[in-house]
């Protein structure tokens, strides 16, 4: 069950979402997987939606 946690990067501004750390200041607890991030969530740096993020290697 222990799937590795991943990192995702916004392709517009380069902001990185690290599943391990979550983003507590945006209301996402550490360990929150990308698929569990709400679909109306926006990049805190540039405001693009989830569709403009892509997964990057850890």
């Amino acid at each position: 069950m222990s799937q590795t946690l991943k990192k995702w990067q916004c392709i517009v501004c380069g902001w990185i979402y690290d599943e391990t750390e979550g983003c507590p200041e945006e209301g996402l607890a550490p360990g929150t997987r990308w698929e569990d991030v709400p679909s109306d969530w926006l990049c805190p740096d540039c405001g693009v939606g989830k569709e403009d993020f892509e997964m990057i290697e850890i």
């Binding site: 916004c10 392709i11 517009v12 501004c13 380069g14 740096d45 540039c46």
Partner: peptide, 8 residues
Amino acid sequence: YSKPMLST
């Protein structure tokens, strides 16, 4: 390209 990424 992503302009902000030029800074890192």
